[in-house]
Amino acid sequence: MSRAGDQSNRRMLKEAGRPVARAAALLGPRQSRVAAAAFPRIGPGRAGAMVKLGAKCLLAGDPAVGKSALAQMFRSDGAHFQKNYTLTTGIELLVKAVSVPETSDSVEFFIFDSAGKDLFSEMLEKLWEQPNVLCLVYDVTNEQSFNNCAKWLEKLRAQAVGMYIPGVLVGNKTDLVGRRVVEQKQAQEWADKHGLEYCEMSVKEMKNFEAPFHILAKSFHQLYKEKVETFHSLA
């Protein structure tokens, strides 16, 4: 990226009130330049025009539930599944666009995949500011990872108090049928209670790994449409 382009991206972040210096320090120079595009301003498009939206997506959950595997599989369209993972020790940024069904529009996700440990809570707070969508992952064979979803959701929503943020709860590792301890009905009820969509998947078997982001794209696009309608009603 040119020096002028980098400066332009930094101005975008400053205008949106984002912590550029902190993001650059945590993500590194390469990823910080990419992160500058992760904070879109939603506005009305021209009638009949294709709309491209950008959304900051926070991916959260306990260690070893499959967050990084999900993000990598989604970004590579199922072509990349790493069998031997090392735990994420900070923040990773992945970018991927999703078409919105039954429209010509799309949502480009800037996915912040974070370590699932409280040790990194200060780092998370710095980069989790004002998310657009949330993806909360747990392991269906690990009841504690499901119980901890309440803690993660509280942390996520604390970054956007008073705002509606579309979110999805994801149960991973459904391939481990004999070891399952969290039933689908239980998780669905919890998601409904907390205003989240719900889906299950098996990243290992490459089943349904795109579903969470398609759900989020549809929800975020609907939110955009509602904002446009409100804008036109006030015009």
Rank of each mutant, 00 (worst) to 15 (best):
S2V: 04
S2F: 07
R3Y: 09
D6C: 07
R10G: 09
R11K: 06
E15L: 10
A16L: 07
A23I: 14
A25Y: 09
R30S: 03
S32H: 05
A36I: 10
A36P: 13
A37K: 07
I42G: 12
R46K: 15
D62K: 08
K67G: 06
K67S: 10
S68T: 15
A69H: 04
L70C: 06
A71P: 11
R75K: 10
R75P: 10
S76V: 08
A79T: 12
Y85H: 14
T89A: 05
G90T: 09
G90Y: 01
L94P: 04
L94I: 04
K96E: 07
T103D: 11
S106A: 11
V107F: 07
E108K: 12
F112V: 01
S114R: 01
G116P: 15
L119S: 15
F120K: 00
S121W: 05
L127P: 03
Q130W: 00
P131A: 03
L136P: 15
L136M: 07
V140N: 03
E143S: 13
Q144V: 15
F146Y: 12
K151T: 10
W152E: 02
L153Q: 09
R157W: 02
A158F: 01
V161L: 07
P166C: 07
G167R: 03
G171D: 02
N172I: 01
K173W: 07
D175P: 02
L176E: 08
E189Y: 00
H194K: 13
E197C: 15
C199R: 02
C199A: 02
E200T: 02
V203P: 02
E210A: 13
I215D: 08
K218R: 14
L223A: 14
L223G: 14
Y224N: 04
K227Q: 14
H232V: 06
S233W: 04
